[in-house]
Design a protein around this nucleic acid. Structure first.
Lengths: 137, 137
DNA sequence: CAATTTTTGCACTAACGTTGCAAATAGTTT
DNA sequence: AAACTATTTGCAACGTTAGTGCAAAAATTG
């Protein structure tokens, strides 16, 4: 596993308490986090605004990526592969457990290709599967 | 194409101005709508609350379905196939054009099956593809 | 360690979403 | 068609979520 300061340094970010703590949280968590989770779970409380800005920065730098949901929230998860600024290799399937509500990145499961209708050009594709996860089985 | 009052009647809903107007909007629009679009585009202005409740009702009755996004909003689109209450046959791919920002239901393109890791059980799956649509090509 | 740049937290504002309740509208019965 | 019942609407109020400007604090640079 990479070392936290390295991740920040490689992205050209200053190393601050909040960034380290939030990054920690992502590294510890095997799944996706919502903004609210982050506010609650970081021991030392940061300002909401700091959390917003940190997440925004991390997304811009390709450290984390966003996961689409239908419940009016955004989930964030670590990019495990090499994501450059703006270009995410975020091609794995996301799994949302309808029992424990956790969102898990299935890094081994690649989003399959689909044939689009004529004159449609693909840039990115995302896939979200809901069901029961291994822990809740 | 179905006739509006029929759709409402078949779902056991009273036929009201707002429901007809909002349903109209969906039938006219070849794509998905966000809550905000609906508030803006219905000629006679309804209360925000009415729009919320109407959308909620439509989802419950299987008239429309929700589309996941990463931008903290929910998109709604007509269910073109036979969706019963609670059981959506919403197994088609959604396409978001990064030029005109429209979301289009690719009814002909079915979400492919994926092999989940051991002990994961699938209930539903959704797929969102971004790119350039036929109109913007 | 001083100077410069970046980041943080606070105050304020704006938008979003939900609920209770009375008025209005739709459906039903005779 | 009128009276009755059930449903739906709009308003007001509330709470949560998200974003911005600016001064203070912390991090980086030399």
């Amino acid at each position: 596993m990479k070392i936290k300061p390295d991740i920040l340094k490689q992205s050209g970010l200053s190393i601050t308490e909040s960034r380290k703590k939030i990054l920690d949280l992502f590294l510890e968590t095997d799944g996706a986090l919502a903004h609210a989770d982050i506010e609650k779970n970081t021991s030392s409380a940061f300002d909401r605004v700091t959390v917003y800005r940190t997440l925004q920065t991390f997304v811009e730098k390709g450290i984390i990526h966003q996961i689409p949901t239908t419940d009016n929230s955004i989930l964030y998860a670590l990019c495990k592969h090499n994501c450059e600024q703006g270009h995410h290799h975020d091609d794995h399937v996301h799994f949302i457990c309808s029992n424990c509500d956790k969102t898990i990145c299935l890094d081994e499961v690649t989003v399959p290709e689909v044939k689009l209708p004529k004159n449609f050009t693909k840039q990115q594709s995302a896939m979200v599967v809901t069901g029961i996860c291994e822990d809740c089985k």
